[in-house]
Amino acid sequence: MKNIQLAKLDKYKDNPNYELIDGNIYKDIEEDHYVFALSYELEGEEDSQYPLEDILDKFLLHVSNFIDEDSYYTNREVTLELGGDLDDIKETIDSIIGKRVYNEEYDDNDGVTRVKLVIA
């Protein structure tokens, strides 16, 4: 994935269920967790599952909402809302915004092919 950016969603504007915390981070009052919106482009053979699943695992986040799912099929752009702990969200934003994120295969010491998440 590339061109990773924070996204602004209209659903946060003047909505008493969302409290602005910092920048593009909101507290979802109803669900009692923090959320932010993210947009990115998929590269090459990437699908909507990977490397997203690895990002979610690494930063202890979950997808709380898919935005404009049709855009994925037409131009390979994804916008979604991620939720989790405030510190995990801040770490994610600091780590991946403006970066390229992808999975890379490698052989471990035992010769087993594994996949690692790369943030560059």
Rank of each mutant, 00 (worst) to 15 (best):
M1G: 06
A7S: 07
A7N: 04
K8L: 08
L9W: 00
D10L: 10
Y12V: 02
K13F: 09
D14L: 14
D14G: 15
N15S: 12
Y18M: 05
Y18D: 05
L20R: 08
I21Q: 03
G23N: 11
G23A: 03
G23E: 05
I25H: 00
K27N: 05
I29P: 02
D32W: 13
H33S: 14
V35K: 01
F36Q: 00
F36E: 00
S39Q: 03
Y40G: 01
Y40S: 06
Y40A: 05
L42Q: 08
E43G: 09
G44Y: 12
E45D: 15
S48W: 00
Q49G: 03
Q49C: 09
Q49L: 10
L52C: 04
L52D: 01
E53Y: 14
D54C: 10
D54M: 15
I55K: 03
F59A: 10
L60W: 12
H62A: 13
S64D: 09
S64Q: 07
N65K: 10
F66L: 09
D68H: 09
E69N: 12
D70Q: 11
D70S: 12
S71T: 10
T74P: 07
E77Y: 09
E77R: 14
V78T: 12
T79H: 05
T79M: 12
E81K: 02
L82F: 02
G83Y: 08
G83H: 05
G84C: 11
G84H: 07
D85G: 09
L86Q: 01
D87E: 15
D88I: 06
T92P: 04
S95N: 14
I97D: 08
I97W: 05
I97K: 05
V101T: 09
N103D: 08
N103Y: 03
D107L: 07
D107Y: 09
D107E: 10
D110L: 13
V112N: 02
T113C: 06
V115D: 04
K116D: 12
K116R: 15
I119E: 02
